[in-house]
Nucleic acid binder design. Sequence first.
DNA 1: CTGGTTCCATACCTTAAGGTATGGAACCGG
DNA 2: CCGGTTCCATACCTTAAGGTATGGAACCAG
Lengths: 186, 186
Amino acid sequence: MPAEGLSRDAYYEAGLDLLAEGGHGGLTIAALCERLGVTKGSFYHHFGDMAEYVALLLGHWEAEHATRLIALSASVTDPEERFDLLQGIAVGLPHGAEAAIRAWSWNSAVVAAAQQRVDQARLSHLTEAGVDAGLEPARARRMAKISLSVLIGMQLLERPARRASMDDVFAELRNWVVAEDSAGRA
Amino acid sequence: MPAEGLSRDAYYEAGLDLLAEGGHGGLTIAALCERLGVTKGSFYHHFGDMAEYVALLLGHWEAEHATRLIALSASVTDPEERFDLLQGIAVGLPHGAEAAIRAWSWNSAVVAAAQQRVDQARLSHLTEAGVDAGLEPARARRMAKISLSVLIGMQLLERPARRASMDDVFAELRNWVVAEDSAGRA
DNA sequence: CTGGTTCCATACCTTAAGGTATGGAACCGG
DNA sequence: CCGGTTCCATACCTTAAGGTATGGAACCAG
């Protein structure tokens, strides 16, 4: 083992911080290095170029942050509990980088691809949850789209996201889903 | 009247086109001038600098595109008709610059301010519509947030926005609102 | 203590985008 | 036909950001 300097993970977390604070415009090599107390020599030692770093950063985000709660809620069958977890996806993310990445995806093809992978994973999971709860597949998919859209929309509608306001909206939505779910099973 | 060259409106419409195609990263002075068949000399003749142009562009967008359907639906009282109009806000916009501007607002304070003005106008109008339809104010506001969030979320969830898919989701949502509305009046 | 490797600083290059300065063509009023 | 204004082309400057080349300090293996 050689001398321990910075790890790649340090660059990932710093990158997510920068995204949360200044959007994708704030994510520059200079800003990264300044935050980590190093110069560009360090960055280009760990990564070939910016494109490679971005790809790895997105992979880190997908694995460590975006899909964690999805996997967590896979074992939950109660509709209300599931909605609490969905709520957690919205308000419990670290750094608030989620919304910044979504905005960024409008300007970058690779970011859009990563974002779409995450969205599709969440969408299929929500759909499956609805089906398990007794909804017919087509309706379950529409409901999943609505739920996910509300999550995304609330993230972008209020910045920073107000916890109380989000709780209100999600409570309203949950009541609806549960009611529809009961009607579907009746 | 002097010799007629380009108008400012031409720069605005070209700017919205560029936003729709390449996001805010595609909106550059060089791209604008290339699209209009002129050089930078023309741009700096009509506008002092980029910041001034952006401010005017946003004003043009607010006045000509964002708030038009809001004013239009102000006279409609039937909940279902109103939802059709809301749907029109989502899918009937020219250029698809709406979503690009929303993404852009994450990186620019002035854009965020303009976006927020539009959002607040839509939100208050939707809330008022719900109250007129018989909902209690607090619930009407939550419903308005949900509706607007779905609109925003669907815009960003599917790119380009698929008309059929959006219709499905909005139909589902409309049924819900109408049902809640009837329940509220019962 | 010597050679190699890791990790990073320094200095420089290149490109893209905003911005400026100036001149010229067209057009119009007088 | 003449002076002024409008409208824009050309050329150049400046800055910020990505990228490169090189050297040096620290550290470990042998």
